[in-house]
Amino acid sequence: MSKKELNQVLGHADEADGIEEYDNPLPNWWLGLFYFTIVWGVLYGINYHFVAHNSEVKTLAAEMADADAKWPRQAEAAAATEVKLTPEAVAAGEAVLTANCVSCHGADMKGGIGPNLLDTTWIHGGAPENIVNTITKGVPEKGMLTWGPILGPEKIAEVAAYVISKNHEATGTPAVGEPAAPADTTKAGSPS
């Protein structure tokens, strides 16, 4: 455009408290940006819904398939991991417990929000596979997290080993292989 067209006042100032207005044309890059976002938005919507038939469910399924290929399923692996009461496993388990469990089960493991781990009551079974199962799947209705995907099978086996050894120390009773003795519900921290 010619320079003459630029910076022409409209002459409305007397109706705008003395504020003059130019009527300059819209900057081309601004118009281009506006058209581009409109075209992009329409094309994106058409592509997402009608061409690629994209959806959150589809994206999730693809990500899960990727994850399955990269890392074997945790639940099966957890079941396969054996609880070994070696000193190394017990020591590693202590670290896992301190980092994750004490806020509910107490620093002394005698309960708090969650039940006492150092008594003879095993609400969900006291055998190693029961303990691993309880930790892995959690007890969502009581507020215990599903730790399987968070800790992984190895750490769960370690923390189970630590719980078993500490429990043995405290009660003098080997918990291994013994199901719950449900009579005593008066102990601190045991939900009734």
Binding site: N7, V9, L10, D17, G18, I19, E20, E21, Y22, D23, N24, P25, L26, W30, F34
Partner: peptide
Amino acid sequence: YYYLPRISGRPVFSYRLSIIHFWA
């Protein structure tokens, strides 16, 4: 749109732009 031109004493750059960006 009121205070910037009043304070700076400069005319508004483009009336046309103000209409189009307002409605958009």
